[in-house]
Lab assay of single mutants.
Amino acid sequence: NQASVVANQLIPINTALTLVMMRSEVVTPVGIPAEDIPRLVSMQVSRAVPLGTTLMPDMVKGYA
Protein backbone atom coordinates (compact mmCIF):
# COMPACT_ATOMS: atom_id res chain seq x y z
CA ASN A 1 0.00 0.00 0.00
CA GLN A 2 1.31 3.38 -0.99
CA ALA A 3 1.32 6.28 1.45
CA SER A 4 -0.26 9.55 0.33
CA VAL A 5 0.20 13.13 1.50
CA VAL A 6 -2.40 14.16 4.10
CA ALA A 7 -2.95 17.63 5.60
CA ASN A 8 -1.62 17.80 9.17
CA GLN A 9 -3.63 20.99 9.81
CA LEU A 10 -6.09 23.29 8.07
CA ILE A 11 -4.21 24.77 5.10
CA PRO A 12 -5.83 28.04 3.93
CA ILE A 13 -6.23 28.76 0.21
CA ASN A 14 -3.06 30.07 -1.50
CA THR A 15 -0.84 28.99 1.42
CA ALA A 16 2.67 27.83 0.54
CA LEU A 17 3.16 24.30 1.88
CA THR A 18 5.76 23.52 4.55
CA LEU A 19 6.85 20.17 5.99
CA VAL A 20 4.86 20.63 9.22
CA MET A 21 1.61 20.96 7.24
CA MET A 22 1.91 17.48 5.71
CA ARG A 23 2.15 13.88 6.84
CA SER A 24 2.15 10.55 5.04
CA GLU A 25 -0.65 8.06 5.53
CA VAL A 26 -2.05 5.06 3.68
CA VAL A 27 -5.49 6.25 2.59
CA THR A 28 -8.20 5.52 0.04
CA PRO A 29 -8.46 7.00 -2.50
CA VAL A 30 -4.73 7.42 -3.10
CA GLY A 31 -3.59 11.03 -3.43
CA ILE A 32 -0.22 12.65 -4.11
CA PRO A 33 2.48 10.05 -3.24
CA ALA A 34 4.29 10.66 0.07
CA GLU A 35 7.68 10.58 -1.67
CA ASP A 36 6.70 13.84 -3.39
CA ILE A 37 6.55 15.75 -0.07
CA PRO A 38 9.98 17.41 -0.63
CA ARG A 39 8.77 18.62 -4.05
CA LEU A 40 5.58 20.07 -2.54
CA VAL A 41 7.40 22.37 -0.10
CA SER A 42 6.79 26.03 -1.07
CA MET A 43 4.07 25.11 -3.61
CA GLN A 44 0.70 26.78 -3.00
CA VAL A 45 -2.63 25.07 -2.46
CA SER A 46 -5.38 26.12 -4.86
CA ARG A 47 -8.13 25.75 -2.24
CA ALA A 48 -8.52 25.40 1.51
CA VAL A 49 -7.50 21.92 2.65
CA PRO A 50 -9.09 20.75 5.94
CA LEU A 51 -7.16 18.76 8.55
CA GLY A 52 -6.94 15.09 7.59
CA THR A 53 -7.71 15.68 3.90
CA THR A 54 -5.71 13.74 1.32
CA LEU A 55 -3.89 16.10 -1.04
CA MET A 56 -4.85 15.48 -4.66
CA PRO A 57 -2.82 16.76 -7.65
CA ASP A 58 -5.46 19.37 -8.54
CA MET A 59 -5.22 20.94 -5.05
CA VAL A 60 -1.59 22.07 -5.49
CA LYS A 61 -0.70 24.79 -7.99
CA GLY A 62 1.96 23.63 -10.43
CA TYR A 63 2.02 20.02 -9.22
CA ALA A 64 0.06 18.19 -11.93
Rank of each mutant, 00 (worst) to 15 (best):
D58A: 10
T28F: 06
N14W: 10
I37C: 04
V26C: 09
E35R: 05
N8G: 12
P38A: 12
D58E: 09
E25Y: 09
S42R: 08
M56G: 04
V60G: 01
S46M: 14
I11W: 01
M59S: 08
P38Y: 10
G52Q: 05
A7Y: 02
V27A: 06
V45E: 00
L10Q: 08
D58L: 08
P33C: 05
V45N: 03
P50S: 13
P33S: 13
S46G: 13
T54A: 05
T54W: 02
M43N: 05
V30K: 07
Q44A: 08
V41R: 06
R23I: 05
L10R: 09
T53Y: 14
A16H: 10
V41C: 06
P50L: 13
R23L: 04
T18P: 00
L40D: 00
P29Y: 05
N8R: 09
S4Y: 03
A16D: 04
A16S: 10
N14F: 09
L17M: 14
P38R: 09
K61T: 14
R47M: 11
P57K: 07
E35I: 08
M21G: 02
Q2Y: 14
V26E: 15
T18N: 04
M59L: 05
Y63Q: 03
N1Y: 15
I37D: 00
I32N: 00
T54H: 03
S24E: 08
R39T: 08
Q9T: 11
I32M: 03
G62I: 03
S24P: 09
Y63S: 03
G62H: 14
I32H: 01
L19S: 05
L51Q: 10
M43R: 08
A7L: 03
S42W: 10
S4R: 02
M43I: 04
R39Y: 14
D36R: 07
S46T: 13
L17V: 03
I32W: 02
N14D: 12
S42P: 02
L55H: 00
V6G: 01
L51D: 15
A34I: 09
A48W: 08
A48G: 07
R39L: 11
M22S: 00
L55F: 12
S42Q: 13
V26L: 11
Q44L: 13
D36E: 13
V49Q: 02
S4A: 03
V49K: 00
R47V: 12
N14C: 09
L55D: 01
L17F: 02
N8P: 01
G31I: 02
